[in-house]
Design a protein around this nucleic acid. Structure first.
Length: 299
DNA sequence: AATCCAATAT
DNA sequence: TATATTGGAT
């Protein structure tokens, strides 16, 4: 009886994985997205299309032992404690990623994706895939989408006055918070209808709303950005590429794409422009860290 | 499982 | 304030 115990025990000991086998495990505890988001890469794992773009890579930080160098503005000497100054890599799955900052560019990418997908397919997962911004999670999109829908709803309310519409004046929305962001990108007309559910294109005719304004309140974002990255300001440039009437997605070659991860699922082919995503972590106020994905494209 | 939505938390 | 998270319903 008891002898059997000692038997399995010795076998148990022998079958323990060697340290070498354990090391790669700890690396896979970090999700690919997370790894990408923080520029953690295995030098030996660089795909051909991805020539190890991150400079901080050559900074293994021998002393501190945390292998997570955050790209910091200017000098990324270290300061890479991702969340907890954890001395090591153990809580890889419990790491909290910084809040995503929805820059106007990122939001436009979002809107473009939604516009291309159509209302029926514009669900978080699909949108996320279409956007092809790594580091972006389904929940990021879901949260944003929720707010965006509320925004669209308000917009619809304002434009439909035809029948007994109370004078839904031109100024009514009382949510400057979300409005400012959302107003940075024009709303595709076909998103402006309240069509939901699986199959209902119930749309006799379109009243053609007149709420397409181009008010750029980039100052706000610039300020926010400045807070997040005191030293690294995204190049806000207004370049006109001769976008015609309702120009939407025309993009010259700006930025690089890095998307070594093949997301499975729908083989979404699209014409969305490629964005360069860059992430910074900064201290806005207190101990908050933010994740800023910004593309190098302007509207 | 994913999604939607409201409420709530940070 | 803006985004994240949660919980219940579909």
């Amino acid at each position: 009886m008891r002898e059997e115990h000692s038997n399995w025990f010795s076998r148990w000991e022998e079958e323990l994985p060697s340290p070498d086998e354990l090391m790669p495990l700890s690396q896979t505890l970090i999700t690919p997205d997370l790894a990408l988001a923080f520029d953690i890469q295995n030098p030996t794992n660089c795909s051909p299309p991805l020539p190890c773009p991150s400079p901080p890579l050559s900074n293994p930080l021998p002393g501190s032992g945390n292998g997570i160098p955050l790209p910091n503005s200017g000098d990324f000497g270290d300061s890479a404690d991702l969340g907890s100054g954890a001395g090591s890599d153990e809580p890889a799955r419990t790491l909290k990623r910084p809040r995503l900052v929805w820059t106007p560019q990122l939001h436009k990418r979002f809107v473009d994706a939604v516009a291309h997908l159509g209302i029926k397919n514009a669900v978080p997962k699909t949108i996320m895939q279409l956007m092809s911004v790594d580091g972006l999670t389904r929940e990021n999109v879901a949260s944003h989408l929720q707010k965006y829908r509320l925004y669209l709803k308000r917009m619809q309310g304002l434009s439909s006055g035809g029948g007994g519409g109370a004078a839904a004046g031109l100024v009514a929305s009382s949510d400057p918070a979300t409005d400012h962001l959302f107003a940075s990108s024009p709303v595709p007309p076909h998103l402006l209808h309240s069509a939901r559910a699986s199959s209902d294109h119930f749309m006799p005719f379109v009243p053609m709303a007149t709420l397409q304004q181009h008010h750029h309140h980039l100052q706000q974002m610039a300020a926010a950005s400045a807070v997040a990255h005191p030293q690294l300001q995204p190049p806000y440039h207004r370049g006109q590429f001769g976008s015609p009437s309702n120009g939407q997605f025309e993009h010259p070659f700006l930025g690089r794409q890095s998307q070594p991860i093949h997301r499975m699922g729908a083989p979404v082919h699209n014409s969305l422009p490629n964005y360069i995503e860059d992430l910074e972590s900064g201290n806005a106020s207190g101990g908050r860290k933010v994740l800023t994905l910004f593309p190098t494209g302007d509207d």
